[in-house]
């Protein structure tokens, strides 16, 4: 069985940066957001690497990465991501911040997916992050799937195996447990948790191949009309501020104790 895997994922500011909410001309934003270095959203990254791994193990699979983000920033991030795994990029130009409405984002992503010329919807596996490092609405992939008519949906996925019985899925559920489910086959949607794969090393040969589709995709990225799904009255930093420190060889118990103290404080 071959699959057409579409991974939805975009960029977030590099986690080491100080993220200060500010009021911008188009509503809330992060201070210096365009100038801060960005990375692929780690949740989306897990989804992408799992997709590439799945595609590598089964014949005639294809992987698309559908990204909604400012295309200039997307281009920078692609210079690293493109070397990780083979995929074709579908870019949509728009904000990638945490201040967008997941409903509107899902609409834009679904529209972009519907526009993929070679996509066989009967083979479609929709992948994405279960959460996001920018603002974990936890609802985007579900809504994209609904718009595409995909009713078999799994969230918090850590493992996906192709078996003779179909797709076997390991989902995170409450209480630190996993739920194993089986779905007959595509189409299905998977909101990935961390998965099981490490970040692949860079492979420039893969990068050069990917660039053949990435650069044209960025050039013809259409602007997304995200509308004003919801308003944000104000934004502020959390009351409790944690000072970043670098401590060598700190015992795990001490780290845990410090975190508990911080949360309680």
């Amino acid at each position: 069985m071959s699959y057409h895997i579409v991974v939805c994922g975009s960029i977030v500011p590099d986690p080491l940066q100080t993220l200060t909410p500010v009021d911008g001309p188009q509503g809330p934003a992060l201070k210096n957001e365009m100038m801060l270095p960005a990375v692929l959203d780690p949740w989306a990254g897990h989804a992408l690497y799992e997709a590439a791994n799945l595609a590598a193990r089964h014949a005639d699979c294809r992987v698309w990465l559908v990204s909604l983000g400012p295309k200039a920033k997307l281009q920078q991030v692609m210079m690293a991501v493109a070397q990780k795994a083979p995929f074709e990029l579908v870019a949509v130009d728009g904000p990638a911040s945490g201040f967008t409405d997941s409903f509107a984002v899902a609409e834009a992503l679904a529209e972009a997916i519907e526009g993929i010329a070679d996509l066989d919807r009967d083979k479609l596996l929709l992948f994405g992050g279960w959460q996001s490092a920018s603002r974990g609405a936890g609802s985007t992939i579900q809504m994209v799937a609904e718009r595409l008519g995909i009713v078999d949906q799994f969230q918090g996925v850590d493992q996906l195996n192709i078996t003779d019985n179909g797709l076997e899925v390991l989902e995170r559920i409450e209480g630190g447990s996993w739920l194993t489910s089986t779905v007959q086959g595509a189409p299905a949607a998977f909101g990935w948790a961390t998965g099981e794969l490490p970040e692949p090393p860079n492979n420039p040969q893969v990068g050069m191949m990917n660039m053949k589709t990435i650069m044209p995709a960025l050039q013809k990225a259409k602007p997304a009309a995200l509308g004003n799904g919801f308003g944000v009255n104000n934004v502020s930093l959390p009351q409790v501020v944690r000072e970043t420190r670098v401590v060598k060889d700190m015992p795990v118990d001490d780290i845990a104790r410090e975190l508990v103290d911080w949360i309680q404080g």
């Binding site: 920078q76 210079m79 690293a80 493109a82 070397q83 860079n202 420039p204 990068g207 050069m208 660039m211 650069m215």
Partner: peptide, 13 residues
């Protein structure tokens, strides 16, 4: 030069 930009990212990582 996206080839060079990728090289930079590889070396940086």
């Amino acid at each position: 030069r996206f080839d060079l930009q990728m090289v930079v990212q590889s070396a940086r990582q």
